[in-house]
Amino acid sequence: GTHVDRTGDIALFKIVSEGGVAAGVRRIEGLTGEAARRWLVGQAAVARSLSEQFRTPVSEVLARVEALEAQRRKLEKELAEARRQLAMGGGGAAASGPEEVGGVQLLARVMDGVGGKDLRPIAEEFKKQVPDGVIALVGTADGKAAVTVAVTGAAAQKLSAVDLARAAVLALGGQGAGGRPDFAQGGAPDAARAEEGLAAVRALLGG
């Protein structure tokens, strides 16, 4: 029960949270009376602060925040695409073709400023240059390294991307890698050793 003599004793009532605590059981938490009033005053103050910051009426704050979030996602997508294009078309070593190591075509690259989540689409693009061989990429960002290895064509019959990626990650000071025989990824804590990771791949291929 509510443990009050009359509903009027409750006065203002505001539900502040709701969630599951067990299978088929939900928990609702609310405030009443003066506590509810103070909570609502605090929420109004937050709304007014956002209104002043965004220079928009309180009633339009939500729409403004949603528009900013959509813009952020768009900019992040454009930045990821710009990084991918830079990695694919940069000068020097990044623009050279694959090398032959142990009778296998190998395209090995260090991608500065490219995080792990952006390596996969880059590897997919490089498959056009290496339809039968190995693509080994080490991305470096925020002092850490990410490894992506793809094995294409007939090379996939004798080589494991997981083994190659694991060798690179271990050389970088990481713990290992996982994935499929034709595609694997892993992470390591030391971006400064990126070239060591590629050297480990070359060594495993017999170069």
Rank of each mutant, 00 (worst) to 15 (best):
E76P: 02
E76W: 05
K77R: 15
K77S: 15
E78D: 11
L79I: 13
L79K: 08
L79T: 10
A82C: 04
A82V: 07
Q85G: 02
L86R: 15
L86V: 10
L86W: 12
L86Y: 12
L86Q: 13
A87E: 05
M88F: 10
G89I: 04
A93E: 14
A93D: 11
A93R: 13
A94I: 08
A95P: 06
A95L: 07
S96V: 07
G97Y: 12
P98Y: 12
E99M: 09
E100R: 14
E100I: 13
E100K: 14
V101F: 11
G102A: 07
G102D: 13
G103T: 14
G103Y: 14
L107C: 11
L107D: 11
A108C: 00
A108R: 11
A108I: 01
V110A: 06
D112I: 08
D112V: 13
D112E: 15
G113A: 06
G113F: 05
G113I: 10
V114F: 13
V114K: 04
G115C: 10
G115E: 15
G115Q: 14
G116D: 08
K117L: 05
L119K: 08
L119W: 02
L119R: 09
P121D: 14
P121H: 12
P121S: 13
P121I: 11
E124T: 14
E125V: 11
E125H: 12
K127V: 05
K127A: 12
K127R: 15
K128T: 09
Q129H: 05
Q129P: 01
Q129C: 00
Q129V: 06
V130N: 04
P131K: 04
I135S: 09
I135C: 08
L137Y: 06
L137I: 07
L137A: 10
L137D: 11
V138Q: 03
V138N: 03
V138D: 05
T140Y: 03
T140W: 03
A141N: 07
D142K: 12
D142L: 05
G143A: 02
G143W: 00
K144I: 06
K144H: 13
K144S: 12
A145H: 10
A146K: 08
V147P: 04
T148K: 12
T148W: 13
V149E: 08
V149I: 12
A150G: 11
T152R: 02
T152H: 01
T152L: 01
G153E: 00
A154I: 03
A155D: 02
A155M: 00
A155S: 15
A155Y: 02
A156L: 00
Q157Y: 01
Q157T: 12
Q157V: 02
K158E: 10
K158C: 03
K158W: 03
A161V: 00
A161E: 00
V162K: 11
V162S: 01
D163E: 15
L164R: 10
L164E: 11
L164T: 10
A165E: 04
R166Q: 02
A167K: 14
V169D: 02
L172H: 03
G173R: 09
G173T: 10
Q175L: 04
Q175W: 00
G176D: 07
A177I: 00
